[in-house]
């Protein structure tokens, strides 16, 4: 088993326009994009949305193949939604009727657009995580959610927890790999046996893993305290987020598209 091959956060380092956009811009744009997707209703609006997505992917220089690969895990949900929509949409043009299942023309159209909508939704959010490093993403989230501090939401702490968690995922994977090898060298068998045997076999892996995670957490807390960390109050940043001209342009374009799609969708286009 190659645990090392798992990529989390799935960031694709690059230097395209999309990569260089402010993370807040990208977050807002993704939200606008999702809203627009739900406002779209027929071919024209979906074509516009597809154009936006395709344009963004092209600009980001992320290989379209890897975006398609990201869609694989949600295949089941897509098929399931499609089936539900096909069979449970009431309509006037009945195409076929078997037992309690009725297939209508409206149902087929609805299922078709639903599948497209889900796939475009996932692709769009993937593009965000592909082009934004996890650290920038949490920075952007913290900045966007900043106003919530006024109502005592611990935004900074949440963002800090998120970045620490992201930072330690690769470390923990490496650690797991190491402990697994060490126990395997003593004859541990993680691959065979029934469910109960397998669960038991995980004990020699989980105990050391938890202990080391706690130890790391403890060390990190001490190290942070040694450097006088006391929460977000009055903390400045090494890299300040700053909106550039391109950010305003992008925001404007996305807002215009969303409104446009909303209007067109309203008229059923």
């Amino acid at each position: 088993m190659a645990l090392k091959d798992i990529t989390l956060g799935q960031y694709f380092p690059g230097n395209s326009v999309v990569h260089r956009l402010d993370p807040r811009t990208k977050l807002i744009c993704v939200v606008l994009y999702i809203v627009a997707l739900f406002l779209a209703s027929w071919f024209i609006t979906y074509a516009v949305m597809f154009g936006v997505l395709a344009g963004a992917i092209a600009l980001s220089k992320v290989p379209p193949k890897s975006i398609l690969r990201g869609l694989k895990p949600i295949l089941f949900i897509v098929v399931f939604t499609a089936l539900l929509n096909i069979f449970y949409t009431p309509g006037t043009t009945v195409l076929a009727q078997v037992w309690i299942f009725t297939v209508t023309l409206e149902g087929l159209w609805r299922a078709f657009f639903m599948v497209i909508r889900i796939m475009m939704l996932i692709s769009g959010t993937f593009l965000l995580t592909y082009t934004t490093s996890p650290i920038l993403l949490t920075d952007g989230l913290e900045s966007l959610l900043g106003p919530l501090k006024k109502v005592r939401v611990p935004v900074h702490e949440l963002a800090m927890m998120m970045s620490i968690a992201l930072r330690f995922i690769p470390t923990l994977i490496e650690e797991t790999d190491k402990i697994m090898s060490a126990q395997r060298a003593r004859g541990a068998d993680f691959e065979s046996g029934n469910l109960i045997q397998r669960a038991k076999a995980l004990l020699p892996l989980l105990v050391p893993l938890f202990i080391s995670a706690f130890r790391r957490a403890d060390e990190l807390a001490t190290a942070m305290e040694c450097r006088c960390y006391h929460g977000g109050e009055g903390r400045t940043r090494l890299r300040q987020l700053k909106y550039q001209a391109r950010d305003y342009m992008t925001l404007f374009l996305f807002l215009a598209t969303t409104i446009g799609v909303g209007v067109l969708g309203h008229f059923g286009l």
Binding site: A182, P204, I211
Partner: peptide, 24 residues
């Protein structure tokens, strides 16, 4: 392995040392 002390997991030292022989 390097830093093998991080692989210990049993309740007692005796049980931990016997993990390998038991698997045999």
């Amino acid at each position: 392995f390097q830093y093998p002390e991080y692989q210990l997991f049993e309740e007692t030292v005796y049980k931990d040392i016997s993990f390998g022989p038991k698997n045999m």
